[in-house]
Computed example of a mutant assay.
Amino acid sequence: MTYLSMSLAAAFVLIALMLSTWQKLGMGKDIVIGTVRCTVQLLAIGYVLQFVFHSNHFGFIGALLLMMISVASWNASRRGARLKGIYWLIFASLSVTEIVTMGLMILLGLVTPIPQYLIPMSGMIIGASMIVCSLFITQMNQETASSRGEIEALLSLGATRRQAIQDVMKRSIKASMIPTFDTMKTIGLVQLPGMMTGMIIAGASPIEAVRYQILIMLIFSSAAAISAVMISLLSYRLWFTKDSMLRAEQVN
C-alpha cells in the first residue's frame, strides 16, 4: 500500500465525522485525535520495528517489550485510579503472563526466538492480557459495591480479607475471561482474526495462516487465565484499609 492509498483511506474517517455531526454526538474531536494518534503511533512503531528487526539485538527487543508492558499497564490502571499501587501490580501480572506464555512457546519450539516472531506475538499477548486486567478491575469495583453488605458481614464474623472477598474475586475473574472464550467460540464463523487475515493478504497459504491463528488463540486462553488470576491475587488487598475495613471510596 502506498502513502497515497493510505491518505485516501481518510475518507472512512470523514464518514464517521459526518455521522457524528449529523447526529450531534459531539465526538468530532475524539475522532480526529484518535485518527491522528493512531496514524502517528503506527508509523513510528513501524520504523522502530524495522530498526529492531535489522539489528536483531535482544537488548532492543527487551526494551521494546518493556515499553509495551508499561503502556499497557498504564492504560489498564486507569480503571482503578483510586487504587494505590495498581499500576505496578498490573505491570507484574502482564510481565509474568508474557514470560510464562512466550517462554513456553520457545521451550516447546513453537516459535523461533527472533524479533519477527517475538515482538508481534508478544504484542498480541500483552494486549489481550491488558484487556483482561482492565475488565477485572472494573468488575471488582462493581461487585464490591453491590456486595458491600455481604463482605462487611463476613469481616465482622472474623473472616480474613481474602475470605470475605473470595466470591467477589471469583465472579470478577470469570467476567474478565468471558470475552476471550466467547471469541474462541465464534472465531472463523463470525470473524476472521487480524493475524490470519494479514498473513493471507501477504500471500501466505490460508492453511498456514489458520495454524498460526489457532496457536495464538490457544495462547490467549492461557494468557487470560494467568493474567486474571495474577491480578486478582496481587490486588484484592487494595479494596481494604490497613485495618481490614472495606474502602468506601473504592466502591462508590
Rank of each mutant, 00 (worst) to 15 (best):
L110D: 09
K170P: 01
K170C: 09
L104E: 08
Y47Q: 12
A72F: 08
I33F: 11
K174T: 14
G123I: 04
S129R: 02
L157G: 12
F53T: 06
N56C: 06
T183R: 13
A92Y: 01
S93F: 01
A16W: 07
S172R: 06
G198C: 01
R211W: 10
L246N: 05
F91C: 10
L64M: 12
M130K: 04
T180K: 00
A153F: 09
I106K: 07
V52S: 00
R79C: 04
F60W: 14
S176Y: 01
F60D: 08
G203Y: 02
S222D: 06
I207L: 14
A204I: 08
P115E: 12
M6R: 10
Q213Y: 09
H57M: 08
M195N: 04
M121I: 15
F181G: 02
M177H: 02
G158S: 03
F58P: 01
I15F: 08
M1W: 07
I178D: 07
Q116E: 15
T138I: 10
G34V: 02
G194Y: 02
T160W: 02
L215W: 06
Q163G: 03
G28I: 02
T197G: 11
A9Y: 04
G149Y: 10
V52F: 01
I69H: 02
W74L: 14
R161Y: 00
G46W: 03
Q213S: 10
H54S: 14
L42F: 07
P179F: 02
G62V: 13
S70G: 11
E98Q: 10
Q191L: 12
A223F: 04
G203T: 01
A204R: 05
G28F: 01
T97C: 08
R79P: 05
S122C: 10
A204S: 15
L14M: 13
A16T: 10
M18V: 15
S222R: 08
F136Q: 09
L83V: 07
V168Q: 13
T21E: 13
M230L: 14
L233D: 09
L118G: 05
S235Q: 03
S55P: 02
N75F: 02
H57Q: 14
V32F: 11
I33A: 08
M169W: 01
G62T: 14
S172V: 05
A92L: 13
I69L: 06
W88A: 06
L233C: 13
Q163L: 05
G28L: 02
K84H: 13
P179G: 05
E152F: 06
G26Y: 10
F181T: 05
F58N: 10
I219D: 07
Q142D: 13
T144H: 08
D30N: 11
G158F: 04
I15S: 00
S176Q: 00
T197Q: 08
I126V: 12
G34C: 06
I201C: 01
W22L: 15
S156T: 08
R161L: 00
Q142E: 15
G80N: 04
K170H: 13
F53K: 05
W22I: 13
A44N: 05
